[in-house]
């Protein structure tokens, strides 16, 4: 293992985060606060409790997931796409680092940043609604697993993309709709039976459901299934990445 290289790339990526610290922290705090004003206070006060939890508290896990998914994907995709775009990737490709080390460093840094954002949102939410986390260890585990999985997805995206438009495409047009429709703001039990079945094809449902379970002990789908689906998604991303590195697709001519 080339630990010096992992450390170098990780620190480089975290320094990039550090330079945009203000934007990294203020923007999620602001958007979360807005969600709370709109959905929690204005509309939420007219909605009854969902699964025995006040609506304001109910949406907290979904809100965190929403940011976690989009942040992980965009951090990781940008992290690997930008050096490809500027050409500085030559240095990483010519260095004595294995693919595994490259992935650990880039994905680790992207996941770290989105976990920090997730925790900041959690702290912000705490200012608006009382939070009682029933399974804190599971909560952290889901947070980390989801961040890593979607950072892997972002890494794949950053290698696939050959322009900035494609880079924006997945977080905006795929991840955000899936998160909104995956039960961020509602329990899927509130949907008509047909749409409940359709929703089960949305992988994000399992992530949000499991994450919400760690807060309130309530879940749309069984916790075992949530854990299984999260791992399945992780394994799929890892398989795609190992294929990319094996063939050198889009990285090495």
């Amino acid at each position: 293992m080339n630990f010096h290289a992992i450390k170098a790339i990780y620190r480089f990526e975290m320094a990039r985060t550090g330079r945009t610290l203000f934007q990294s922290i203020v923007s999620p705090v602001l958007s979360t606060s807005l969600y709370f004003v709109v959905f929690g206070a204005a509309i939420g006060s007219r909605i009854e409790e969902v699964d025995g939890v006040s609506y304001g508290a109910f949406i907290v896990p979904g809100l965190i997931m929403l940011s976690l998914l989009t942040q992980s994907v965009s951090n990781a995709s940008f992290g690997i796409y930008f050096p490809r775009f500027t050409g500085t990737i030559y240095e990483v490709l010519s260095a004595p680092v294995s693919y595994l080390e490259i992935v650990i460093a880039y994905v680790g840094a992207a996941a770290t940043k989105s976990i920090l954002v997730g925790l900041i949102i959690l702290a912000t939410a705490h200012l608006f609604v009382p939070l009682d986390i029933q399974h804190p260890v599971w909560m952290l585990l889901f947070l980390m697993l989801t961040a890593v999985t979607f950072a892997l997805l972002g890494f794949i995206l950053g290698i696939w993309a050959d322009n900035f438009e494609k880079l924006q495409f997945v977080p905006l047009l795929v991840v955000t709709p899936l998160a909104f429709l995956g039960g961020s703001f509602y329990s899927i039990n509130m949907l008509p039976p047909f749409w409940q079945t359709v929703t089960l094809f949305n992988p994000v449902v399992y992530l949000i459901s499991g994450f919400r379970w760690s807060f309130y002990g309530q879940a749309d789908v069984s916790i075992g299934l949530s854990v299984f689906m999260t791992f399945l998604f992780l394994v799929i991303c890892l398989a795609v990445i190992s294929w990319i590195f094996k063939t050198g697709w889009r990285l090495r001519a």
Binding site: N2, H4, A5, K7, R11
Partner: peptide, 14 residues
Amino acid sequence: WATVNFSRGLFGKP
């Protein structure tokens, strides 16, 4: 300074 130190680390040197 940062970029040259980065290169050294990337190539596995302390």
